[in-house]
Amino acid sequence: MNLMMTMALTTMIPLILIIFNHLAPKTSPDMEKLSPYECGFSPLENARLPLSIQFFLIAIFFLLFDLEIALLLPIPWALNTSTTATTWMLLLIFLLTLGLAYEWSQGALDWTK
Rank of each mutant, 00 (worst) to 15 (best):
S28L: 13
S28M: 10
D30Y: 09
D30F: 09
M31Y: 01
E32K: 12
K33C: 01
L34P: 02
L34N: 01
S35R: 13
S35E: 14
Y37I: 11
Y37M: 07
Y37R: 11
C39S: 10
G40V: 06
F41Q: 11
F41W: 11
L44A: 12
L44K: 10
E45F: 10
N46A: 10
N46R: 15
A47C: 04
L51P: 01
L51R: 09
S52R: 13
S52N: 14
I53P: 05
L57T: 04
A59N: 06
A59S: 07
I60N: 11
I60M: 08
I60W: 00
F62N: 02
F62W: 00
L63Y: 05
F65K: 04
D66S: 12
E68K: 04
E68C: 00
I69V: 13
L71Y: 03
L71P: 03
L72D: 01
L72N: 01
L73A: 03
P74F: 09
I75K: 09
P76C: 02
W77R: 07
W77S: 05
A78S: 03
L79M: 08
N80F: 13
N80S: 11
T83C: 12
T83R: 15
T84W: 14
T84L: 15
T84C: 05
T84A: 15
T84K: 15
A85E: 02
A85M: 08
A85P: 01
T87I: 10
T87A: 06
W88S: 04
M89Q: 08
L90R: 11
L90C: 05
L91W: 05
I93N: 12
I93H: 10
I93Q: 06
I93P: 02
F94W: 06
T97L: 08
T97V: 13
L98P: 02
G99F: 01
G99V: 07
L100C: 01
L100S: 01
A101G: 09
Y102R: 07
Y102S: 09
Y102L: 11
E103H: 05
W104P: 03
S105N: 08
S105F: 15
Q106M: 14
Q106F: 14
Q106I: 10
G107W: 00
G107L: 07
A108G: 01
A108I: 06
L109V: 12
L109I: 10
